[in-house]
């Protein structure tokens, strides 16, 4: 009778103390973890912010003090970068190529994936594994033969040639990803469309593609970033005329040439112009981008 309450108070005291200890530990860890996390925020974003700020400074100022803030906003850096350093032209090249290659990748990738996911035919499994296996090849190994194949087909240093290369090298992951996506869609709708007399092609374009939209968006963003940022393929296949460079290529060569010319302001402005659209796309679609790109690693 008398022991029971004491026991209870003891226990409540103990848990009370335990919780308080946990709370202080939690609070300490909380401060500690925020401190570390903020350090990496500075390290990750610092160089990019520095580039954006420096883009508004004159070349002379940049050389004398790399850390300073712009005294006046040198907007002319941006116009210099856009016209004289040809960033505008490179951006246009990137855009044109991306328009073709992204459309092609999504169209061909979803066509192949749909057939592999939804139809039984001899060789189905083999074709799926053929695409899946392609994700593991390092592109650098294909470098030399790819160059000569493109040369023999007169596709070297042409826009459509580069588009085709982008499409071909995006197909393995796109097909792989969309195949598993199409498999998750309900079969009933497809059957109903067929029963209603729709052809296979029409079922695909008017019924299945709209249903696959979430998957198409994820893989579309993934391919958008991958193809917009591509460096090795254009370096190999689109290297003849500077006027045809895509953005990453153009900036890499600008980094060298502006060194001779000494127009650092234009280089920083060019970098800012090149980074901005991608960061905006990322900011808008951040959840899908994070999901899409990390899914790419776990192939």
């Amino acid at each position: 009778m008398t022991t029971a309450p004491t026991e209870r108070t003891e226990r409540s005291e103990r848990t009370g103390r335990g919780r308080r200890a946990r709370e202080t530990e939690g609070a300490a860890l909380n401060v500690f973890s925020h401190a570390f996390l903020v350090v990496w925020v500075v390290l990750a974003a610092g160089p990019l912010v520095w580039v954006a700020v420096t883009a508004f400074r004159s070349s002379g100022d940049i050389l004398s003090d790399p850390l300073g803030l712009p005294s006046t906003l040198h907007w002319e850096n941006f116009s210099n970068a856009w016209t004289e350093a040809k960033i505008g032209r490179y951006a246009l090249n990137s855009l044109v190529i991306l328009a073709g290659s992204l459309t092609g990748t999504m169209l061909l990738g979803s066509m192949a994936a749909y057939v592999i996911a939804r139809f039984t035919f001899p060789g189905n499994r083999f074709i799926f594994l053929l695409f899946a296996g392609g994700m593991m090849f390092p592109v650098i190994l294909a470098l030399v033969p790819l160059f000569t194949i493109m040369d023999n087909l007169s596709l070297l240093d042409t826009r459509h040639g580069l588009m085709i290369a982008y499409i071909a090298y995006s197909l393995p992951f796109t097909t792989f990803f969309l195949t598993s996506f199409f498999r998750t869609l309900p079969t009933g709708v497809q059957e109903a469309a067929m029963v209603d007399g729709a052809s296979h092609t029409r079922t695909f374009f008017q019924i299945m593609l709209p249903m696959a939209k979430p998957g198409l968006v994820s893989i579309g963003i993934f391919n958008f970033l991958g193809q917009w940022n591509q460096y090795l393929l254009p370096l190999l296949l689109n290297n003849e005329s500077e006027d045809n460079y895509v953005l990453p290529q153009g900036l890499a060569s600008l980094a060298v040439s502006q060194g001779y010319r000494g127009d650092w302001g234009a280089l920083f402005a060019g970098l800012t112009i090149a980074m901005l659209p991608v960061l905006v796309v990322y900011a808008v679609f951040q959840r899908q981008v994070q999901a899409g790109l990390t899914a790419g690693a776990l192939k």
Binding site: V41, L225, Q230, L267, M275, V289, L293
Partner: peptide
């Protein structure tokens, strides 16, 4: 943290 990952590696190299 994810910012660097969405940039072209060539542009990262220039930065």
């Amino acid at each position: 943290y994810f910012f660097p990952q969405v940039l072209s590696i060539a542009i990262v190299a220039v930065v």
